[in-house]
């Protein structure tokens, strides 16, 4: 009997997947959901590009137009916004899952690094996207975020110049942010996602326990069924959020105005809280960079064991697990202090 050729989507999966690790409650589908959110982001982003005008005078007006005038514009912008916000959550939880199941060990350490790069790209995407709204709420976060670059010794001023395009925020800034958001980061993300997925397959598919043999397996068709179900659920959640909790939008940004109050985008509120208590270089640049370096060094410094792969809360990886949990909890606490 001639076997049917698998379609491309099936082909992306290993033919057989270990049953335990193939289950939803091992991965919680977080990597796959992040991928699916990116697909939504690409699609809705492309639609927004047709109306968005990257200029200081027109950017806010064009977002108003997308939101209030263009049919389904509110929905499309809402999905783009919520997919971006959820992506920060799903990628962070994905990282947490990978740490807690020891899936960064041995030959998977390279993929851990690729994942860390992708996390940074997600944050850069979110920050530039947030700024492109060009309304009063974003202006102070944009000002502070870019002024932080200047505090870096030696290269700070040149970096600021490259990021902002002038000696202060203005017309050039919005064009640069737009370029990075829709093109620069998209290319970087594309390359790293393909590499990230390729490494998963190359490293033997989903990380799994090595102690029990033979391993009970399922076919990829079963996994794909769960994935399609997850896509439906995620899409319904996105549409519901877009309709029920639409993203905010205020009048055009004007840095000569006095802000009533200025809050960073929610994923950087912890940095804002840190900045309130000390030197900008230390609080706003060095501490975040240190945390990122710590995350990246997990398989190289905190846990160099080869064993414990695929085991929730494995003993060998205790130090790595505690470190990542501490980082996430501290960020949550700092955020809550500021918000409450």
């Amino acid at each position: 009997m001639k076997r049917k050729r698998p379609n491309f989507y099936l082909h992306l999966h290993s033919p057989k997947i270990p049953k335990r690790e193939g289950s939803f409650f091992y991965t919680f589908g977080l990597g796959g959901i992040s991928m699916f959110l990116l697909l939504w982001l690409g699609l809705t982003g492309l639609l927004e590009v047709f109306y968005y005008i990257p200029s200081a005078a027109d950017a806010n007006r064009s977002v108003q137009m997308i939101t209030f005038l263009i049919p389904y514009g509110k929905l499309i912008r809402g999905i783009h916004y919520w997919a971006g916000q959820l992506l920060v959550v799903t990628t962070t939880l994905h990282m947490l899952r990978v740490v807690l199941t020891g899936s960064y060990k041995a030959q998977r350490s390279l993929n851990w690094l690729l994942g860390a790069v992708l996390l940074v790209v997600v944050l850069l995407f979110n920050f530039t996207g947030y700024a492109l709204r060009w309304d009063e709420d974003i202006s102070w976060a944009l000002l502070v975020g870019t002024n932080l670059i200047k505090t870096i010794p030696l290269i700070g001023d040149s970096l600021y110049q490259i990021a902002v395009g002038s000696s202060s925020i203005g017309e050039q800034t919005i064009v640069r942010f737009y370029g990075w958001h829709i093109y620069g980061f998209a290319i970087i993300a594309g390359i790293f996602i393909v590499w990230h997925m390729f490494r998963v397959r190359r490293d033997g598919g989903i990380s799994s326990r090595q102690d029990d043999y033979p391993v009970e397996k399922i076919t990829r068709d079963e996994l794909v069924e769960i994935e399609i179900l997850a896509m439906f659920v995620v899409s319904i959640i996105l549409i519901a959020l877009a309709l029920l909790l639409p993203p905010s939008l205020s009048g055009p940004a004007d840095l000569n105005n006095i802000p009533e109050d200025a809050t960073a985008p929610w994923f950087f509120i912890w940095v804002q809280q840190l900045l309130g208590s000390g030197d900008p270089l230390v609080m706003g640049v060095l501490i975040p960079v240190f945390l990122l370096a710590l995350i990246m060094l997990v398989p190289f410094l905190l846990d160099r064991n080869q064993s414990g792969i695929g085991v929730w809360f494995n003993k060998e990886g205790r130090l790595a697990q505690i470190t990542i949990i501490l980082i996430i909890v501290s960020i949550l606490i700092l955020t809550l202090i500021k918000v409450l």
Binding site: W140, L143, V144, N147, L148, L255, N256, N257, I258, P259, E260, D261, A262, Q272, L275, G276, P280, G284
Partner: peptide, 24 residues
């Protein structure tokens, strides 16, 4: 100058003082 010397936000008038809305 109304520009906060910390990270450049515009300071607001409080009670007999100026407050920066960004980092306090």
């Amino acid at each position: 100058s109304s520009t906060c010397t910390h990270l450049g936000c515009t300071i607001n008038l409080g009670e007999e003082r100026f407050d920066c809305p960004c980092h306090g």
